[in-house]
Nucleic acid binder design. Structure first.
Lengths: 257, 257
DNA sequence: CATAACTTTGTACGGTGTAAAGAATTAAAT
DNA sequence: ATTTAATTCTTTACACCGTACAAAGTTATG
C-alpha cells in the first residue's frame, strides 16, 4: 500500500533500471555492489555453465553479497533475466568501418551472422521466456544498426521493420539446433555426429515403409553432411530469404519509376 | 554393472520408448499405468498451465501413481520432456484431402501455418531444450508430410531437406513472439498493446537522438499495428522466403532444360 | 541525538528432482 | 507347492530452488 500507481510502476521499473533512470536513495548504507555487478556475474555464470546454473544464491555469492541482499537490487529472478538479456545485446551494436560502402544485402548478411554468433556465444538467451520485449539501450542500439542496413533503399518504415524483424526471426529459429548441438557437445563431449553413429544401428531395425521420403532424403542428407551442419541450413535459408527481399525491393523500385 | 553396453543403451533407450521397441518384462507386478498415460497427463498440464507447472510430482499424481513410481516408467524428467515433444507432433502429419491438387507453394504455406498453429497450441515446446533431436514416429510423420510438399518439383534430396529445414527454422523463430504474447496475455490478462500504452509515457522521457532510425521506424510501426501483430511479420517473412525458393526452383528447372 | 530510510543478514517455508531402501506383486525355477 | 528372482510401488530423505519475513546494521536528515 505504499505506491498508489503500483500497477504501472511495476511495468516501468525494469525500463527505469535498464535506462538508469532510478533515483538513488539518499539515506541508508551504501550498497556493497552495483546492479551491473550482479547482472555481469549472472551472465558469466550463464555463459560458462548454462542458465540452470544461474540461481539467486549462486549469483549473489559470485557478486559478493549474501543470498537475500540480492533482492534489494533486483525485484525477482525474472527481472534479473530481463536485465541479462539487454546486458549481452551490446555486441553487434557497432557496425564495422566498411559499413558505409556495403550494399544492403551484405549488411543484412552481416547482421544475420553477428546475431547468429551472438546466440552461439550466449545460448541461454534462447531459453529465456521474457514477459515483455526488453527495450533496453543495448537492445535498441542493435536494432538501430540493423535498421541502418536497410535504410535508403526505397523501403518505407513498415517494410524496414518487417524486413529486420523477419530476418531476426529467421536467425533465432535457425540457430536453435546449432546452439543445442554446441551446448550438448560441451557438456557431454559427444557431437551430434557421434550420437548419430551411436544410434544408427537402432534405426536399421525399424520399418521405414511408412516414411518413404524421409528414408530417402534422410539417408542421403545424413550421408552428405550428417546431422552435423546446422550452419548449412542457416546459410541456405538466409540466401533464400534475402533473394526474396531482393525481389521485393526490385519490384518497389520499378513501380516507383 | 548390469549392462555391459551401458553407454550405448542410454542413448537408444529414448528411441526404443518412442518406437515401442522395449521388451516388456515377464515377472513383477503389472504397472498401474502405461507410459503413454504419464506422457499424456504431462502434456495436458503443460498445455493448460505452462511448462513450469510440469513437475514430476504433479505428473505422477495426475497419472494416478505415487511420486516415485513415476521413475519406473521414465528415467528422468528430461526423458519425459523428450517423450512429450514427440507426443504432440501428431498434428500436421496427415495432409488435407486437397493436398494432391495443391502446388508446392500452397503446400509449404500450409506446412508453415500448421507448424505455426502447433506452436501456439503447445507454446511450451519452444521452451524445451532437448539433448538430441527427437526422432519419434510422430515427428517423423510430420517430416514426411513436409517433404512431400516439395517432392517432384525438381529438387534433389539435399535441397528438399534444406528447404523444409529452413522453412521450419523460420517458423520456430517467428512464432516465439506470438507465443510469448499469447501466453503472457493468458496469464496476466494484459496484451502487448495494453502493455505498450502503459509504458509509452516512460519512453517519451528518453533522449532518442542516439537512435534516429528506431525512433522513426518504431513510432510509425507502433502507430500502424502496435506491438500486437507478430502474425504480420510471420507472413511477410514467409512470403519472402518462399519467393526466394521459387527463384531457386525456377533457376534449377531452366538450367536443366 | 533521535528518527526515518535504507541495505544486509539469518531463518524459514513450500517446492523441486531424484537417490535409497523396503514392501508388495508376479512369473519362473525348483 | 514353495522358493527365488525380477519388477513395481511406496516411504523417507537430501540438497537445492525462489523468496517471505524479521531483525540487525548503516547512513543522512530532523
Amino acid at each position: 500500500m505504499a505506491e498508489e500507481i503500483s500497477g504501472r510502476s511495476d511495468q516501468t521499473r525494469i525500463l527505469q533500471l535498464l535506462w538508469g533512470k532510478t533515483d538513488t536513495p539518499k539515506r541508508g548504507p551504501k550498497p556493497k555492489v552495483a546492479l551491473s555487478d550482479i547482472v555481469a556475474a549472472a551472465v558469466i555464470i550463464a555463459d560458462a555453465e548454462g542458465l540452470e546454473a544461474v540461481s539467486t544464491r549462486r549469483v549473489a555469492e559470485a557478486a559478493g553479497v549474501s543470498a537475500m541482499s540480492f533482492y534489494t537490487h533486483v525485484q525477482s529472478k525474472a527481472e534479473l533475466l530481463d536485465l541479462m538479456l539487454d546486458h549481452v545485446s551490446g555486441a553487434g551494436s557497432v557496425p564495422p568501418p566498411e559499413w558505409p560502402q556495403m550494399d544492403w544485402r551484405a549488411r543484412m548478411t552481416l547482421v544475420a551472422e553477428s546475431l547468429w554468433q551472438h546466440y552461439l556465444t550466449h545460448p541461454w538467451v534462447l531459453q529465456i521466456e521474457t514477459h515483455r520485449p526488453v527495450l533496453g539501450p543495448n537492445t535498441m542500439a542493435a536494432y538501430e544498426v540493423a535498421l541502418s542496413a536497410v535504410a535508403d533503399i526505397g523501403l518505407d518504415e513498415i517494410e524496414m521493420d518487417l524486413a529486420i524483424t523477419s530476418l531476426a526471426n529467421y536467425v533465432t529459429g535457425a540457430v536453435r539446433n546449432a546452439a543445442r548441438a554446441q551446448t550438448v557437445k560441451e557438456l557431454t563431449g559427444m557431437s551430434d555426429d557421434q550420437w548419430w553413429h551411436a544410434v544408427a544401428p537402432f534405426f536399421e531395425t525399424l520399418d521405414y515403409s511408412a516414411y518413404p521420403l524421409s528414408a530417402r532424403v534422410g539417408s542421403i542428407a545424413g550421408e552428405t553432411y550428417g546431422l552435423g551442419d546446422p550452419g548449412r541450413a542457416f546459410r541456405f535459408g538466409l540466401d533464400r530469404l534475402l533473394d526474396g527481399m531482393e525481389l521485393m525491393i526490385a519490384r518497389k523500385v520499378s513501380t516507383r519509376k
